[in-house]
């Protein structure tokens, strides 16, 4: 009996190993869904000089690690103020613009986050001298700017990205202000800007165009 039990356990272990290695060859990595809070991407604007002096590093972000990075090469998108760059395409002429070495691209969908389930490769645009993949300006890209209240409000749309190494991600920007307050008071509008809070879903498997 005892031997039989041992053999059974041993067999099961062996089988499970086989199973595991079998699965590994066909099972995909799990889709990552994360919330990034308070990604701080300030723009420093000095209007005492003419033309105004602009300083401020673009803050680079990497989807596979889900965090910001200082790497010159391993990044997908970069933030500064309300501007978002992708690591793909040509230099646009902005001050302190990072070098692009990847094949990242983006497009906007006027649908809420949950409803974007598939990537349409034909819609991707890269940064170029003609403009950014995510256009700047109120109601052109991801935000609306309200001059009387001086507030930047996300449009609630979805940005679909191709990462520098050809994988896909979708992003929903929730807020441009620290701690994503529901109500933007003049105080917050003046002091707490340049803080991105966003949801993203990352499809880590190359060639996989679905977010489900």
């Amino acid at each position: 009996m005892r031997t039989l039990k041992l053999i059974t356990v041993f067999t099961l272990i062996i089988l499970s190993f086989f199973n595991c290695s079998d699965d590994d060859s066909i099972t995909l990595e799990a889709i990552e869904s994360e919330l990034v809070t308070n990604l701080f991407a300030p723009t420093e604007r000095d209007f005492s000089t003419n033309p105004p002096t602009i300083s401020g590093e673009f803050v680079k972000f990497d989807f596979s690690s889900g965090s910001i990075t200082t790497s010159e090469t391993d990044w997908d998108i970069a933030f500064r103020g309300t501007t978002i760059l992708v690591n793909g395409g040509a230099t646009t002429g902005l001050a302190q613009e990072p070098q692009r070495n990847g094949n990242a691209a983006a497009y906007l969908v006027n649908t809420t986050f949950e409803n974007v389930t598939e990537v349409d490769e034909s819609l991707f645009v890269q940064d170029s001298g003609e403009g950014l993949a995510i256009p700047t300006g109120s109601d052109n890209g991801w935000y609306n700017y309200n001059p009387p209240t001086n507030t930047v409000s996300p449009l609630g749309n979805t940005i679909v990205f191709r990462t520098a190494d050809g994988r896909y991600a979708k992003v929903q920007i929730l807020s441009f202000y620290k701690d994503a307050p529901a109500e933007i008071t003049p105080q917050i509008a003046a002091n707490d800007l340049d803080h991105y809070t966003f949801n993203f879903v990352y499809q880590p498997n190359e060639g996989e165009a679905s977010f489900n």
Binding site: P154, G156, Q172, L174, S175, A180, P181, A182, T197, N199
Partner: peptide, 8 residues
């Protein structure tokens, strides 16, 4: 008091 998403 925090934004968590959007609805159409």
């Amino acid at each position: 008091g925090t934004v968590v998403g959007f609805t159409t």
